[in-house]
């Protein structure tokens, strides 16, 4: 079993936004790994590891589209426990989701993977597209927003609990498949791989990279491809029309009675 996990670097979401003309200025940004990708890697590792046993049930490959010398996030996930990496050397900030999805699909195909695990979205653009587009391009079944996941190895299928607006939808999909994960996938009992005891309690959240993992990360194999070598021509079906900061909220008013409030809602806000 080979699991491909997409990972992305993003400008630190805790930093305040800077603008340069008609775009967000990321020239002085600190780049960090997308949090949902941490959950995706954690999911893949929980599937791959047989707790209490040295066997690995799957190989975990992290894949990122990024400039090859800006791979700190890839190293971080190798430190966390992924087996190896694949980098598509390109400026991902200039690409639309369809191009990224084509690159991911091509890596998936060439590696002969059985499962694509992706964070449901990246915290910068919040597009929530790559997993679904890749599933389409690969013509594979997909389950998005996974909150729970059970791997039935006998049936070669996944049972996925999806958090949707009216509750949790459970669906079973055959492998190979595409899964995008939501944050509850890293709760202590969310992932079951059929080998590790079902009642095994994982620590809450994505694991920390162990010190041994960190020192070993640089020794792990990372293949670098170009979009051209993968036969993908970057397209841009999406053009940025403009970027502006949301308008600042005007100061509120404190009123002395419910009557005044209602009057103001009628006469000033004109919402009643």
């Amino acid at each position: 079993m080979k699991i491909l996990v997409t990972v992305k670097r993003i400008p630190d979401p805790d930093e305040s936004l800077k603008f340069a003309g008609n775009a967000i200025d990321t020239s002085s940004s600190k780049w960090v790994a997308n949090a949902f990708d941490e959950y995706a890697v954690e999911t893949a590792l929980r599937m791959a590891e047989h707790i209490g046993n040295k066997d690995r049930l799957a190989e975990v490959i992290v894949c990122s589209v990024c400039p090859k010398d800006k791979r700190q996030h890839v190293t971080q996930f190798l430190a966390m426990g992924a087996d190896r990496g694949v980098i598509v050397d390109a400026d991902e900030t200039a690409m639309d989701s369809q191009t990224v999805a084509k690159l991911v699909a091509e890596v998936f195909r060439r590696e002969g993977c059985d499962l694509l695990v992706s964070g449901k979205l990246s915290q910068d653009s919040e597009g929530n597209e790559v997993a679904q587009r890749a599933a389409g391009l690969l013509d594979l079944p997909q389950a998005s927003f996974a909150a729970t996941l059970r791997w039935d190895r006998g049936a070669n299928a996944l049972t996925v609990g999806r958090e949707v607006d009216d509750g949790v939808e459970t669906k079973t999909i055959p492998l190979p498949a595409v899964v995008s994960v939501d944050l509850r996938i890293v709760l202590p009992h969310s992932v079951k791989n059929g080998a590790t005891a079902d009642d095994h309690k994982y620590s809450d959240g994505a694991r920390l990279a162990s010190l041994r993992g960190i020192t070993m990360a640089k020794r792990k194999k990372v293949d670098v491809h170009t979009p051209a070598a993968l036969g993908v021509t970057p397209s841009s079906h999406v053009a940025v029309a403009g970027v502006t900061a949301p308008e600042k909220r005007a100061a509120g008013q404190i009123v002395d009675s419910a009557q005044t409030l209602v009057n103001k809602l009628i006469t000033e806000a004109k919402v009643l």
């Binding site: 700190q72 190293t75 971080q76 430190a79 959240g205 920390l208 990279a209 162990s210 010190l211 960190i214 020192t215 990360a217 640089k218």
Partner: peptide
């Protein structure tokens, strides 16, 4: 180095969480 920074990150998160 980047690796030293990664060691610090793990230790910092461990201190915060544990």
């Amino acid at each position: 180095t980047e690796e030293q920074q990664a060691l610090v990150d793990t230790a910092r998160k461990f201190a915060a969480e544990t």
